[in-house]
Structures are given as structure tokens and as C-alpha cells.
């Protein structure tokens, strides 16, 4: 009887754990595959040697991973900064200013935010070629930012909507300009929103690989995701070295998992269209 009561109370946990089994299984499988050779039946850490040194495999040299990690961090921060610099003023305008064609622009924003960026890949390639920006980090940074910014603007607009107008009124009475109001009064009131967007931007940059694969020809400029896409995966559907792929895949996934653990409460600050009773 007691057991029944206990299990009823904890049914939701059973349910959640049951649902999570495939994912947990996947993580375990990834780890096992990275240290265990299914063919020879031996355990070894050989697939993890990228942590300590560069190594050669079947004639290809694989660099040590840390400079690539460094690239990834720099790349992520760069995108985050550009993203915020562009998105915040735009979101402010969308939320609090009146301008010609705003309704249309907002819809356009929505469409852009979820527009299949991939359809623009080839033409973007030619534009970058024309601008002489191919094989530069800059090209990937702006293209990647341009892909994310529309929906970041949209979410930030929601945060601006939440900030009380009275704050801004009082600021204007004190003689602030709109611009001064923005960064002295409003922004400090929506730091959580800004950090949420910053996190999203950083994660977006972390996962970016297609642009890097196509636009960067130089293997010293790769980020982790680009490294994985370009160096480890070479054929569309043939997996040549499961051990190495899973090892690097795990190495890629673990930090972002930990990152989530610490930032998920901030990420949860995001609301769409103000959920407080529309």
C-alpha cells in the first residue's frame, strides 16, 4: 500500500526517466564506442589522444585540440558581441518606437528569423567571393549572425515590451534622450533577457558548421564544429572511424551540457509575446 502511494507520487519521475532512456543510452554508447573497439574487442584511450598531442592516422595528421577550442571560444564571443550590438537597438526600435512600415517589418522579421538560410548558401557564397571575404572568419561571423539575429530581435522585443513605460517616462522627464534612456534605464532592467540572448548566440556559434565547411578552406581557422564536419567527416554517408568521431563528438557535447546546466535558468527567461495573459 505504501509502495503504491510512493510510486503514484513518483510516477512522473518514472515517466521522465523512461522517456530519457534513449538519450542516456546514446551518451553511454558514445562513450563506450570511443574507448572500445568492436572489431578487436579491446579497450583503449587511443581515440582520445587529441587531448594531449597531435597524431597521425592513416596518413592524415590530426592537430591537438586546444587551439581549435580557443578558436571556438573566440568565434563564439565575436558572434555574441556582434549579435547583441545589432539586435538590441533594433529590438528597441521594434518595441518602443514608431516608424514607417513597422507592422510589415515585424512580419518580415518573423519570416526571416525562420527562413531557410540554406537556400541562400550559394548566393551568399558568391557575395562573399565578390567582397573578397571568402576564407575569412569575418564572413562566417556575419553570415552566422545574420541568420540568428532576426529571431533574437524578436525575443528581445518581448523583453523591451515587459519593461515598464513609467521607467522611461520618468527618465524622459529628467531630460534623458531616448538613447540615454535606453542604456541608462532600460537595459539595466533587462539584463536577464540580454544574457539569455547572449547564451543563444554563443550556442548558435558553437554549433555552426555548414558555413565553416563551405567558406573556410584553411584548416587552421576551424572551430570544433567545423573541425568535426570537415576533418572527421569526409563522406556524406560513410563513417570511417567511429571511435574518433564519438570521442570528438563527446568532447564537443560535454562542455555544452555543463554550460546548459549553469545557464538554463537564464535561458528560461525567454518569453514569446509576453505570456502574462494576452
Amino acid at each position: 500500500m505504501n509502495l503504491w502511494k510512493f510510486s503514484k507520487r513518483n510516477m512522473i519521475h518514472f515517466f521522465m526517466i523512461l522517456l530519457m532512456l534513449p538519450i542516456v543510452f546514446m551518451i553511454i554508447w558514445l562513450f563506450v564506442s570511443s574507448v572500445y573497439n568492436y572489431n578487436s574487442g579491446r579497450f583503449s584511450w587511443v581515440n582520445w589522444q587529441f587531448l594531449t598531442r597531435s597524431f597521425e592516422l592513416e596518413g592524415i595528421s590530426f592537430p591537438i585540440i586546444w587551439p581549435i577550442v580557443m578558436n571556438t571560444v573566440v568565434f563564439g564571443l565575436l558572434i555574441t558581441v556582434i549579435d547583441l550590438l545589432v539586435a538590441i537597438p533594433a529590438a528597441y526600435a521594434f518595441s518602443r518606437l514608431n516608424f514607417f512600415g513597422k507592422g510589415f517589418a515585424l512580419k518580415f522579421l518573423f519570416i526571416m528569423g525562420s527562413f531557410p538560410g540554406i537556400t541562400l548558401l550559394i548566393t551568399s557564397f558568391f557575395i562573399m567571393m565578390y567582397l573578397g571575404l571568402l576564407n575569412t572568419v569575418f564572413a562566417v561571423v556575419v553570415l552566422s549572425a545574420a541568420g540568428m539575429i532576426p529571431w533574437h530581435v524578436y525575443i528581445l522585443k518581448g523583453f523591451f515590451d515587459e519593461v515598464s513605460w513609467d521607467l522611461e517616462f520618468s527618465g524622459m522627464i529628467d531630460g534623458c534622450s531616448r538613447f540615454k534612456c535606453l542604456y541608462q534605464i532600460i537595459l539595466p532592467n533587462m539584463l536577464s533577457g540580454i544574457s539569455a540572448i547572449a547564451i543563444y548566440a554563443f550556442m548558435g556559434a558553437y554549433g555552426e558548421w555548414l558555413l565553416i565547411k563551405l567558406f573556410i578552406f584553411d584548416n587552421t581557422k576551424l572551430t570544433l564544429a567545423g573541425y568535426l564536419a570537415k576533418v572527421i567527416f569526409t563522406d556524406d554517408d560513410k563513417v570511417t572511424n567511429i571511435g574518433l568521431i564519438t570521442a570528438i563528438g563527446l568532447f564537443y557535447t560535454i562542455p555544452i551540457g555543463i554550460f546548459y546546466l549553469f545557464t538554463q535558468s537564464t535561458m528560461m527567461k525567454v518569453t514569446i509575446g509576453g505570456s502574462k495573459g494576452v
Binding site: G59, I60, D235, T240
Partner: peptide, 8 residues
Amino acid sequence: DDYGARML
């Protein structure tokens, strides 16, 4: 076009 021993 591929990955392999030819790099050596």
C-alpha cells in the same frame, strides 16, 4: 577527393 593513404 577522399581521405586516405595517398596523402603520405
